[in-house]
Amino acid sequence: MSGTDSGTEHLTVRREGATLVLTLNRPEAKNALSLPMLVGLYDGWLEADADDSVRSVVLTGAGGCFCAGMDLKALAGQRATGGDADVYRARMKADPDLHWKAMLRHHRPRKPVIAAVEGHCVAGGTEILQGTDIRVAGASATFGLFEVRRGLFPIGGSTVRLPRQIARTHALEMLLTGRPYGAEEAARIGLVGRVVPDGTALDAALEIAERVNACGPLAVEAVKASVYESAELPEEEGLAAELKRGWPVFDTEDAKEGARAFTEGREAVFRRR
Rank of each mutant, 00 (worst) to 15 (best):
G144F: 06
A171Q: 07
K111Q: 05
K93G: 08
A139F: 08
Q165M: 12
M174I: 14
H99D: 06
I166A: 09
L175A: 08
R164I: 00
L98I: 15
A116C: 12
P163W: 00
R89T: 13
P163V: 02
D97E: 15
A137C: 12
I128W: 11
K111Y: 02
L104M: 09
V136K: 01
A116P: 11
H99S: 10
R150G: 10
A94R: 13
C121R: 01
R150S: 14
G178H: 05
G131K: 05
T142A: 14
R91F: 05
E147Q: 12
T159S: 00
G151E: 04
R161L: 14
R149W: 11
G151S: 03
T126H: 04
G151W: 13
T132I: 08
F143I: 01
G131S: 13
L104T: 01
I134D: 04
L176D: 13
V160L: 04
H107Q: 03
T132D: 02
K93W: 06
G119H: 11
I134K: 09
R149G: 11
A171H: 00
E118R: 05
G131H: 11
A116N: 14
R105M: 08
V122E: 09
R89K: 14
I128L: 11
G131A: 01
L129N: 03
F146P: 12
I114K: 07
R150W: 13
G144M: 10
A167H: 13
T169A: 12
R135G: 02
L104I: 00
L172Y: 02
F143W: 02
Q130W: 08
F153T: 13
I128P: 05
G138I: 09
G178P: 10
A139Q: 14
M103L: 00
D133H: 03
A102F: 14
Q165F: 09
M92W: 15
V113Q: 01
